[in-house]
Write a protein that binds this DNA or RNA. Sequence first.
DNA 1: TTTGTATGAGACCAATCGGTCGGTTTAACC
DNA 2: GGTTAAACCGACCGATTGGTCTCATACAAA
Lengths: 195, 195
Amino acid sequence: MQRMQVTGLELFYRNGYYNTSIDDILKELSLSKGAFYYHFESKEDFFIQIIENLLVRKMYSMLIEPIEGHENTLDLITQCFEEALETAVHNEFDFGFVLSNFISEFNGKNETIMKHLNDILRIWEVNLVSAVQRGKFNGYIDRHVDSEGVAVYLMSSYIGVRTLMVETAPSARKYRFMSQLRQYFKSLEPKTTTV
Amino acid sequence: MQRMQVTGLELFYRNGYYNTSIDDILKELSLSKGAFYYHFESKEDFFIQIIENLLVRKMYSMLIEPIEGHENTLDLITQCFEEALETAVHNEFDFGFVLSNFISEFNGKNETIMKHLNDILRIWEVNLVSAVQRGKFNGYIDRHVDSEGVAVYLMSSYIGVRTLMVETAPSARKYRFMSQLRQYFKSLEPKTTTV
DNA sequence: TTTGTATGAGACCAATCGGTCGGTTTAACC
DNA sequence: GGTTAAACCGACCGATTGGTCTCATACAAA
């Protein structure tokens, strides 16, 4: 059952949800339809369980927990993005950002699943916002900065660069992205001109 | 035939390529299979023609031509993004950024189509790079700025925010995004401290 | 050994897919 | 009116889809 979910996520990620048949997954595992429908109600139910069990965990470990510390927020985020992108660069079978790929696929087609995906997005956003607020409180970020704005901008750029890194020069694009991210972050630091 | 392409793009955009059957398109137009396969070799050929005829044109008119002038580059890009996002906000049937949606869908599945999509991406990138270079030449952008880096960062953030604007508070997210974009642009302006 | 239950196998189903093909309509030209 | 070719119709095909159903196996408790 755990194996089914892991393999399911792999194939759904690689080929998309609608373009991956249950038979594909079962063939990979040498299992039968009977085994599948004994454990899961439907393909949709199967996918939702994958989201809840695997995708959420992955998001936490890669993009949320790494920025939870009390050190310099901007450094934490920089390092977090750096590592996440580096993982993608070295992944031979990278097909973009899992979450945003699924959002693109289900948007306007399956409201139930979209709700689950948006939940994850919101968790990410909330954590980014409070990280920025922490940074302001600790004096690493100028206190006039709009925390929600920074969060949206960070999520946007990350989602986008992961799409751009698909297939065309991922390493170069990662490098350029990170260097501009640092440039942007510099503009968020407290104005030293303030007395 | 033109009608077929327009309707085809509409449905492919709304439901995805693999999730839209030829019958769906023909039903919408009250046409038959015969009519379709008289004009197009296959579903793939049909889609590629749509890309070449409609998608490329759309990209040019919305994201490339508006930034081609010789005024302040950063202003041009700001206004261009502003208008593109505003269009999305007011579009009742917005399903994200057409180009990046298709990239997500075809990535790793159809190399032929991916080549066409990447072509469009590269055209966009080239135009952004030369816009930034123009800005440096005209004194609107600091000459130490990395043009390619800015281009990648701009494309990333645009692609990402279009994904984020899907379904959840598009207007608020657009506003926050634009305001952070301006913040970022400010950091690209020439350092007045230079004598 | 018998029974009960958890787990799985795989034939089967209706619906749908992209694509084919023989035939019909339409309209322009001689 | 006859000819031709572009445009279109729709029945049909084999393959595949998500899902159901019946039946087989495994193993622990009685």
